[in-house]
Amino acid sequence: MSGDLRLILFDVDGTLADSQGAITSAMRVAFDRVGLAAPSRAEILSIVGLSLPLAIAELAPTLDASVQAELVEGYKSAYKSARLAAGAGHSPLYPGAAEVLAELNAVPEYLLGVATGKSQRGLDALIEAHELRCFVTRQCADHHPSKPHPSMILRAMADTGVAAAHTVMIGDTSFDIDMGRAAGVRTIAVNWGFHPADQLGADHIIDSFADLAPLLQHIWKD
């Protein structure tokens, strides 16, 4: 383990990217295609961060597995079609996100990564659309158990050789913060995402991306 390096892990949906419109729209299309009323916007956003099959199971627990599978595929299809049509505007970055990523990436000791419930395809497309080539580790739902299992963070730390004491997880949902806690790393909740930040039990809360760099300096001042 390197004592000099610091690993900064970001969730994507609701933390870096404002994808609520894209997610709710795709979910409504998926439910419509199987002839069912879609869950409410609040219900849909409450499961963002879970892997897609688990999210569907949470939204529609009484449906047969075959129908749940149809919903999963319907969501994937609708989301991809909308993304291809809209490009970078499909899931715009939150204000200050690109700037803080560039700022942190310029610090030699900092390594940036993502830990997301998105698929590999969806993550790669978003990174390409916004030209976010700063991440040295990209952990996604295709290769890990769903959040809040700590697998994504544990793999990111193993890949980069950074200890838990020198790692932070930044996210907007209970799944992100619980995952960070399970992995034994410091957690930072953002105050603009899909779950109320003050209810997540994170070690720290930031109100804007402008707060992040000073907070990291404070955390790692020793």
Rank of each mutant, 00 (worst) to 15 (best):
Val168Asn: 00
Ala69Pro: 05
Gln139Thr: 02
Ser46Thr: 11
Ile177Leu: 14
Asp32Cys: 01
Gly96Leu: 07
Ser77Tyr: 15
Val67Gln: 12
Gly14Asn: 08
Ala115Leu: 05
Ile56Leu: 07
Leu200Arg: 03
Ala115Met: 01
Leu84Trp: 05
Ser174Gln: 15
Asp211Glu: 15
Pro95Phe: 04
Tyr110Glu: 10
Pro145Met: 12
Ser77Ala: 15
Leu132Asp: 04
Ala57Cys: 15
Thr116Gln: 08
Ala17Glu: 05
Ala88Ser: 09
Asn191Pro: 08
Pro150Gln: 13
Ile206Trp: 02
Ser77Trp: 15
His90Phe: 13
Val190Ser: 10
Ala202Lys: 08
Leu215Val: 07
Asp11Leu: 02
Leu54His: 15
Gln199Gly: 07
Pro148Ile: 06
Ala85Asp: 08
Ser46Arg: 10
Met179Tyr: 03
Asp222His: 11
Leu111Met: 12
Asp198Phe: 11
Gly49Cys: 13
Lys147Met: 04
Leu93Thr: 01
Val136Ser: 03
Gln68Cys: 04
Gly184Leu: 12
Ser66Ala: 10
Thr116Glu: 02
Ile44Lys: 01
Thr187Ser: 12
Ala26Leu: 12
Leu111Pro: 05
Ala102Trp: 08
Ala106Leu: 07
Asp198Ala: 14
His149Lys: 11
Ile219Trp: 02
Gly161Pro: 01
Gly49Arg: 05
Gln217Met: 11
Asp203Thr: 01
Tyr79Gln: 08
Leu111His: 04
Glu73Cys: 12
Val12Lys: 06
Thr15His: 00
His143Met: 08
Gly49Ile: 11
Asp64Ile: 04
Phe10Tyr: 04
Ala26Thr: 04
Ser2Val: 04
Asp32Val: 01
Arg186Val: 13
Ala189Thr: 04
Ala86Gln: 11
Ala42Val: 13
Ala69Cys: 09
Ser25Ala: 15
Ala163Phe: 07
Arg133Cys: 05
Ile23Gln: 03
Ala57Trp: 10
Pro108Glu: 03
Ala78Thr: 06
Gly122Val: 09
Leu50His: 03
Asp203Leu: 06
Asp222Tyr: 08
Leu123Glu: 04
Thr187Ala: 13
Ala106Glu: 12
Met179Thr: 01
Ala183Asn: 03
Val100Trp: 10
Thr15Asp: 01
Gly184Thr: 05
Met169Asp: 00
